[in-house]
Design a protein around this nucleic acid. Sequence first.
DNA 1: TTGTAGGCGTTATCAC
DNA 2: GTGATAACGCCTACAA
Lengths: 342, 342
Amino acid sequence: MSSQRVTLRDVARRAGVHPGTASRALNPESRHLVKAETAERVRQAADDLQFHPDPAARSLKTRRSYTVGVLLPDLNNPLFPPIVRGIEDTLGRHGYVVLLGNTDNDEDQERRVVEGMRSRNIDGIIVATARQRHPLLDTVVAADLPVVLVNRILDDPSFPSASVDDQRGAELAVDHLVQLGHRRIAHIAGPQDVSTGVGRLRGFEEGLRRAGLDPDPDLIVVAETFTRNAGRTCMAALLQSGRSFTAVVAGNDLLALGCYLALEDAGLRCPDQVSVVGFNDMPFIDQLRPPLSSVRIPHYEVGTAAAELILDRISDHRAPVASRVLPAELVIRASTAPPVQL
Amino acid sequence: MSSQRVTLRDVARRAGVHPGTASRALNPESRHLVKAETAERVRQAADDLQFHPDPAARSLKTRRSYTVGVLLPDLNNPLFPPIVRGIEDTLGRHGYVVLLGNTDNDEDQERRVVEGMRSRNIDGIIVATARQRHPLLDTVVAADLPVVLVNRILDDPSFPSASVDDQRGAELAVDHLVQLGHRRIAHIAGPQDVSTGVGRLRGFEEGLRRAGLDPDPDLIVVAETFTRNAGRTCMAALLQSGRSFTAVVAGNDLLALGCYLALEDAGLRCPDQVSVVGFNDMPFIDQLRPPLSSVRIPHYEVGTAAAELILDRISDHRAPVASRVLPAELVIRASTAPPVQL
DNA sequence: TTGTAGGCGTTATCAC
DNA sequence: GTGATAACGCCTACAA
């Protein structure tokens, strides 16, 4: 039917005005320049004709694409889908569209992906891959491209960010274990070049100290990646070290899953012999064997917050740098129990 | 530094030719029109200057956006991330970019999302939400927009599609149970307005017949949605019906998770009293209690196949309609065991 | 084989 | 308050 392309000229003709006027009438920022009555007539015509401005033409003129890049390690990590949805839903309501990019933790790939985004004139970029020393961020800043960090942040507070109170989350995990009676608690820490790994380790140590316990360096092992395999390896190493412990806080749920495997390998039972706490509250971990206690993160809200921040930066590149830190919360299931005296 | 926008004119100037020539030299389809030597000089200049053609300008002229829409129910369903990655990786290699749209199974939302995509001049759309009677598809066809169905297909074979042999997959599940000695096998079927639900039910019945067993209608219950809650409800109904059975094939893993819950509610143990088989082989179901036997689907490859099909359709709207059906495979874990005589 | 010119649909800068 | 006009960067007849 109306498969014919309808342009601003069509709208203008129908409303009996010049295309320039129609453009002004249709754009919120310039609507005040045109008589209310005319504006209404144009709006009506646009409506009748089902007019949608051509984004290519607009973008060519305005140098804005109404497109935002989202850079993440891997969409398959269950952490990201809800964050992405939070971002998309929010940006979508403001007429923006998301370009997803997976880096697979590879610097070259990351560069290529960002290159591709920039060549498409993205108006801003949301970065979920931030490492403490990150050349990418320098280039992005140099290009005056609005950035917001999500999930992983930097010590350097010069970037806007939406994240979670990782430290507090880890403290909650420790508190819980201490209350159950645990005294010798281990930590499988995440990689220490990303904020989530660092913050949770810090929270772990702080939690112990506040309980009057001394963090034992031998009970802290740092995983190279946030993966199940890494968790298995680290937990195995911990068990083989011979140091005694009755509970472990894992840097995230995948590491916790690895702990489960290592415990099984060693013929140990959770929570009977070792309690385990995860981080992220991944979907369906309530049906693991045993159901995993975990620190819950408001993923979707982290996404919406990031989207709001990038919108602010886009509309004003010099807007004050804001950081949104959302609270974590402990979900207690069956992987934690009082320690048994051996 | 080189943050200045570099255009075709810059490239042309550096190569000592006119912009028109530069354009021809840079475009694969017109490269043959220009002397090899000149073309090389232009290519070199473009390389030196890090030239990227402005997609907005190109799109304005060519009416192609190098953008493909992907319509899915909800990215949070663990089924989709790997499919999306397969699509993005493949399309990305061909210079295309993906616009994701979540419908949340809501028709209005679906219309809005597709509207948004169309206003952005997508070159094609990959649809993972196909229902047997689907107005959306009519409008898309009417607009001569290339479509490919993924995962869910139609009986109507006029759409290109990339999917999985659902029927054969369900047959594999039944075969396995029969071999273990089960004779009274139930099925929690998925919704019957989507092909995955239908195909798996068909395969379930066919599998029984091939084993010389008669499908018992009372042992088939149809879930309204592919969710954990629906699975729980259906399984509970089945248990309450009083019909005896020793195994159940679930329409997908989420339904299987619901079965687990219902069994637990009823104080029954899996696989001791009831064996369960899922469908999709979701991540980490190997660590469920008990580890879930499931029909594995090559998600990523389904995505890449869909991407290839849409590329074909885009480059030739009248290309023959192709359907790619990928094989399913049974992964046996600990949720299936021989039946015990009660 | 290469140069020239016009236009894709929109917005912005002028006049009027 | 509105109309005319040029320009965004690229592609593509057509001319040379």
